[in-house]
């Protein structure tokens, strides 16, 4: 019984990581209606940047995280202004295929630079520390911290969207870019800032990916799929829904893995398809556009 409770808890906390994967994707979609196929590869890239910062530059993990966030945010800004801006307003095919191409470029670049070996970031005591919740039930400190970060990121984003001028500009641009321009909003700049913000979240996800899991240059697509599934399960445009989606994926993966180690990822995918059949618009639908 406690075994299963532990499994369940692990699954819920794993959902925190998936939520972080999904939040950047959700943000880019929410503001730009962009589904970034290279999203997972960018998470892996952020993980490698973290690895370089810690192992080559010998930065402490927290400082490394700050560097990764800055680098990825700047990269996101440049990516949007330099490349993705050309795909805005050109139907679904153009952004989809451009980011697909980008995904292939990133994977192979990382293969060239970092080789195909699996890597991981050593974070010392944090990796093994655990918290006892009474009885035989314990949870890892790191997964707990990831879940805490995911919730904090969502709260911060919610505040940004509802309480700041930039947030209102994001929402207005997402609603109707043309009319937003009539308000004096530079929508290209807004898109670039949104992408920078999305990449900052990707950076956070990447750092945790580096610490918590082993990763390799070709691990991006799998992370994209989890991010995508969490977004769809939660309902497009709903950040709290994304958290619910992430938890559902984490729990189904933990249960599946418990039953048969080969069924972990498969269970998450099946849970996603099941939700799609029962609730095609996700659990907490916000926008209708899909």
């Amino acid at each position: 019984m406690t075994d299963w409770l532990n499994t369940l808890l692990q699954g819920v906390l794993l959902g925190g990581l998936y939520t972080l994967f999904a939040t950047g994707l959700s943000l880019a979609f929410g503001v730009m209606r962009l589904v970034n196929i290279a999203h997972g590869d960018l998470i892996v890239l952020a993980a490698y940047v973290a690895l370089v910062a810690v192992e080559t530059l010998h930065l402490p993990v927290l400082a490394a995280a700050a560097v990764v966030i800055l680098v990825m945010a700047a990269g996101g800004y440049v990516l949007q202004r330099g490349l993705l801006t050309h795909t805005v307003g050109r139907g679904i095919l153009s952004p989809l295929l451009v980011t697909f191409g980008l995904s292939i470029i990133l994977q192979n670049l990382m293969l060239e630079i970092f080789s195909a070996d699996s890597r991981g970031l050593q974070a010392g005591a944090l990796e093994t520390a655990s918290v006892s919740l009474g009885g035989d039930i314990t949870v890892g400190a790191l997964p707990l911290m990831i879940m805490g970060t995911a919730i904090a990121v969502i709260v911060l984003l919610q505040l940004l969207f509802t309480r700041t001028t930039l947030g209102r500009a994001f929402r207005a641009t997402s609603d109707d870019g043309e009319t937003a321009q009539l308000m004096g909003i530079d929508t290209k700049q807004v898109y670039a800032l949104a992408m920078a913000l999305a990449m900052a979240v990707v950076a956070v996800a990447g750092v945790y990916t580096a610490i918590r899991t082993s990763f390799d240059p070709l691990g991006g697509p799998n992370r994209l799929l989890f991010a995508f599934e969490a977004v769809i399960i939660g309902g497009l445009g709903s950040l709290w829904g994304t958290l619910a989606g992430g938890i559902i994926l984490g729990v189904s993966q933990a249960i599946g893995f418990r039953l048969d180690p080969g069924w972990g990822t498969l269970s998450s995918h099946l849970a996603f398809l099941a939700v799609l059949v029962v609730r095609p618009n996700g659990l907490f639908p916000r926008t209708r556009d899909r």
């Binding site: 989809l96 995508f228 599934e229 769809i232 080969g262 498969l266 995918h269 799609l276 899909r290």
Partner: peptide, 28 residues
């Protein structure tokens, strides 16, 4: 039946999930 509930880019990623499901089922 499942995928046509999604549109555009979401359909695209959905097809990928389905392919992964078949890959994992076969691997098992």
């Amino acid at each position: 039946l499942v995928l046509f509930r999604l549109r555009g880019a979401y359909f695209a990623v959905g097809t990928w999930v389905v392919a992964e499901v078949f890959r994992l089922l076969t691997a098992n």
